[in-house]
Design a protein around this nucleic acid. Structure first.
Lengths: 223, 223
DNA sequence: TAATAAAAAACGAACGTTCATTTTTATTGA
DNA sequence: TCAATAAAAATGAACGTTCGTTTTTTATTA
């Protein structure tokens, strides 16, 4: 029969990758066999090799496809946050990061597969130079906030926001994948409030803070 | 021959587990074969089964042994921190967590193996009820700090400290295993300073903070 | 009918585990 | 003190499966 149209090929590949992803996140890379994939995808074993050269090629294709989705979602999240340093917005940001993690936890399972099997070859770009990307998105806002005097001296807004991103991210990952079971002793709502509070206002009371400022010792830390 | 002395058995098991761990963290669970382990441990394939019932049993024994070491190291770290909320101490704490992560990054690779292959069955206890353990260790100190008025109102010291722990932990893990490559745009020393600053004093200037307090809106967040 | 997709069969290699056999050595009796 | 012994430890070939991949055969349709 003649060559399949590209759209049909794409559909078939999507079906295969859906099946493969389901299995991969459930049991890892090596524990997932090509026979498992062919069975779940309802495609013959041999035919898989008409679409992909190797098993790893399936894994890579899944990651590439999924990365695009995640980056898109992240872009949506960032675009919704216009004033990233406002506590309300930071909390909202954390909330959206939490939804992303919970809705797509399998994506991060794929990342762990990548860390273990491929030294994170395919996922390195997720974290490499993370702060530069934040600066690209919010650099102007950060500069404005600084000029307005919104920021404590010695604190870099892009570091704060990137740190907050990592913290929210990690909080929900631990809850979802690592059996955190309310590891902060709070439900998600309360945790979001508390984390936001810490990032915005810190821990120490103003009295304590000013007593610290009177001392000379903590040059590197006191800002 | 009569039974080997327990000390010899323990030595032999240690040798096997050292080899197995080396391979597991390099290539994952399913990619590591019993033959690989027997070769590196210089023990015959069959003899492995005199020491362990299954391959998974080797994995479990490694985790149990390693968990004890890590918990001991964590205990040492905690015991060195007498005033956990003092910025200097918090920074010191972060530094020690960093050393722990860097010296034992393979331990957390084992955790990712566990997440993928065994739904984190063996590692759940690492995070489950984490904050309760922190309260057990520092509860008195936290209460004292609160009574002294060191803490911003509405901020729970045990949440702060647990959060800081997670943040330090995650920062070094990302750098070590996920290709972070100075993902905060700072070297480790600077990052420690900056993170400590955030936890102690927060982000917002006092002017900004007081203007927030005048508003009625952010009841949940403003503390 | 010619070209291509899909399916089926087959490949050698490797897997975890078992087991008959050999080697080792702590104990024993003298 | 030291062979003899018996029980445990160590061995490596072999088992039945399963692996990723290749090759061959069959089905489909412009």
């Amino acid at each position: 029969m003649p060559k399949l149209s590209q759209s049909v090929i794409d559909e078939n590949k999507l079906g295969i990758e859906d099946a493969a992803r389901t299995l991969l996140i459930k049991q890892g890379f090596h524990a997932t066999s090509m026979r498992d994939i062919s069975k779940l995808a309802e495609v013959s074993l041999g035919n898989l090799y008409n679409y992909y050269d190797t098993k790893e090629a399936i894994f890579e294709s899944i990651i590439n496809r999924y990365s695009n989705i995640i980056n898109e979602k992240l872009g949506e999240i960032f675009s919704e946050i216009d004033e990233p340093l406002e506590p309300e917005n930071m909390r909202k940001f954390g909330e959206m990061v939490g939804e992303l993690v919970n809705q797509h936890s399998d994506f991060w399972l794929l990342m762990y597969i990548d860390v273990l099997e491929f030294q994170n070859r395919h996922f390195r770009k997720m974290f490499d130079g993370l702060i530069d990307r934040m600066r690209k998105i919010y650099g102007d806002k950060f500069a404005e906030a600084k000029n307005r005097g919104d920021l404590r001296t010695g604190v870099d807004a892009s570091v704060v926001f990137t740190t907050a991103y990592m913290q929210f991210f990690n909080y929900f990952l631990v809850e979802k994948l690592f059996g955190g079971n309310q590891h902060l002793g709070l439900n998600d709502e309360q945790a979001l409030n508390h984390l936001t509070k810490i990032f915005a206002y810190g821990t120490l009371s103003e009295e304590k803070l000013s007593s610290f400022k009177r001392e000379t010792a903590n040059k590197a830390i006191v800002g």
